[in-house]
Write a protein that binds this DNA or RNA. Structure first.
Length: 275
DNA sequence: CCATATACCTGGCAGC
DNA sequence: TGCTGCCAGGTATATG
């Protein structure tokens, strides 16, 4: 489900309510992608000191240690003063004095993993190879020269799977990859290393523009995404190609096509996007 | 090292 | 109605 905008919206809808909460108990449901890594009772009495995001991971800072959370394909977080009885897809509850942080994740590709500190091996394993954030804490776009260099260094890899890889920049998932390439006028199968510098810079700018627009609209709710208040996103109303095969492009009227790249679907406009 | 394929899991939907 | 097959927003790991 969640790409960078949905994860960031989840973070923003949660941070002010959960900071300072003190952990009382932990409830685990079915196994997630990885085990928590400690006995749940270790978390008891710890206080939440922050909620950060790195790529599509959330980092729940505690006064000792950090919980890495990932929403996988179908995860969402909620926080309520009193949580309802857990359903069959509620696999993690962090019960605090301020409310219950709950991970709902039908497919269970998500994860909650404990790390004693940011130097722990598990942090390095999960976050160590992530590329730059699309923008820094002041909202400044990521470095254009580094992006250009990363594209040039790739071999024959097509630009679309390269964007998904998260090495040149993090946060672009399957919806936004198609949307970004449409807005940049780039065919998804172009070898990344063959893009001219101006086209690479255009692409870099569209990555920032599309992702930040999506954040401003509360993310995309295609099926079931909700922020931690239960609110839906609106970016799906702005989608130009994703999921629209056979329909006319609303810029040029050309046909939108669907193809498969690296076992993932890609949508693009035959006329607007060139090799 | 690189690029590509696989594995994980459940629910919804089209087609029969 | 009920079955089957396919598809879905991610990514660590295995494989070539």
């Amino acid at each position: 489900m969640p790409e960078l905008p949905e994860v960031e919206i989840t973070r923003r809808s949660l941070v002010d309510r959960i900071v300072c909460a003190r952990v009382q108990t932990v409830r685990l449901g079915k196994p997630l992608r990885w085990p928590l890594g400690i006995q749940p009772s270790v978390l008891q009495g710890l206080r939440v000191t922050g909620l950060r995001r790195r790529g599509k991971y959330l980092l729940l800072d505690l006064d000792a240690g950090v919980l890495l959370l990932h929403l996988g394909m179908s995860g969402s977080l909620s926080f309520d003063p009193v949580a309802p009885q857990p359903g069959p897809h509620d696999h993690f509850d962090l019960v605090t004095d301020l409310g219950v942080l709950r991970l709902h994740d039908p497919r269970r590709f998500g994860a909650v993993v404990w790390a004693p500190d940011m130097e722990a091996p598990v942090v390095h394993k999960l976050l160590g190879r992530l590329g730059p954030e699309p923008w820094d804490e002041l909202g400044r776009p990521f470095d254009a020269q580094l992006f250009w260099t990363a594209l040039r260094a790739s071999r024959g890899q097509a630009i679309k799977p390269l964007l998904l890889q998260g090495r040149a920049v993090v946060g672009v998932g399957n919806i936004y990859a198609s949307e970004v390439l449409f807005r940049a006028g780039i065919h998804p199968a172009v070898p990344a290393c063959s893009l001219s510098r101006p086209r690479a810079l255009r692409l870099r700018n569209e990555v920032c523009a599309v992702l930040s627009e999506a954040v401003n609209l509360g993310g995309s709710t295609l099926r079931d995404f909700r922020d931690a208040h239960g609110a839906e996103g609106l970016f799906q109303t702005q989608v130009r190609v994703y999921g629209r095969e056979g329909q006319p492009c609303d810029v040029c009227g050309g046909k939108i096509r669907k193809t498969t790249q690296g076992q993932r679907s890609t949508w693009w406009c035959v006329a607007c996007q060139r090799r």
